[in-house]
């Protein structure tokens, strides 16, 4: 790891921590938001962010980019998957299963109109139902407002993959939102 930062010899540590404070600390909300959506649990999310911030501090010298948020979010994502000791590929199977049963796009239906009045609680549940590769891409795009390029950098995927995942995630979310009430209704009857 190159440690050729042009730091002032007198107090490299204070310069380093000041840089960390101004660049990385403002991204704490973004880090927690992603961690929370990945872990889907308050306490786990805090653990993930705590660990990710420690890693960020440890490897801060290797940060030469210009977007600390993208850098930190990539660390949060990696931390989550390593802490879970379960590779993201595992949950990919969920979405691959889904591909075996392609979604039927039946155009605008009475159900889709209910999307108009989607409340936060329903959306939260629907998002949490998505497999994590689809959930993370939606969270990064819609909640963090990352560009495709930034999402590609965070997840280590090609932009084409990001595009197709995002399309799949949105279709899947739409299905979750429109079909769920129908099932509930069926149970009611």
């Amino acid at each position: 790891m190159p440690v050729d930062l042009h730091t002032i010899p007198s107090s490299p540590d204070s310069v380093r921590s000041a840089r960390f404070e101004t660049l990385v600390l403002p991204c704490l909300d973004a880090a927690y938001n992603l961690a929370h959506w990945l872990a889907r649990d308050h306490a786990d999310a805090q653990d993930v962010v705590q660990e990710a911030m420690l890693r960020a501090l440890r490897y801060f010298d290797s940060f030469h980019g210009n977007d600390a948020r993208v850098w930190l979010l990539a660390i949060v994502r990696n931390t989550y998957y390593t802490l879970r000791t379960k590779a993201p590929q595992d949950s990919l199977h969920e979405s691959l299963d889904e591909e075996a049963h392609p979604l039927v796009d039946d155009g605008p239906s009475p159900e889709t109109l209910t999307l108009l009045a989607v409340d936060v609680g329903t959306l939260q549940l629907a998002l949490e139902c998505l497999p994590s590769p689809l959930r993370e891409v939606l969270v990064l795009r819609e909640l963090e407002e990352c560009s495709y390029k930034e999402i590609a950098a965070i997840t280590g995927q090609k932009i084409g993959t990001v595009m197709s995942r995002l399309a799949r995630a949105r279709e899947r979310l739409k299905v979750e939102l429109t079909h769920r009430p129908k099932e509930v209704r069926r149970h009611d009857v």
Binding site: L25, L28, D29, A31, Y32, N33, H36, W37, H42, A45, Q46, V49, Q50, M53, D105, G107, P108, T112, L115, L116, V118, V120, L123, Q124, L127, L138, E142, L143, R170, L173, K174, L177
Partner: peptide, 30 residues
């Protein structure tokens, strides 16, 4: 119509209630 649905979905996802801000305990620690 498909475009309309997805843009409504996007708006719905932009609701601040879905964004999880860092809890104070974490913020204080850092």
């Amino acid at each position: 119509a498909s475009y309309g649905i997805h843009s409504r979905l996007r708006k719905a996802l932009a609701q601040p209630g879905l964004y999880h801000r860092a809890p104070d305990a974490l913020r204080e620690r850092w």
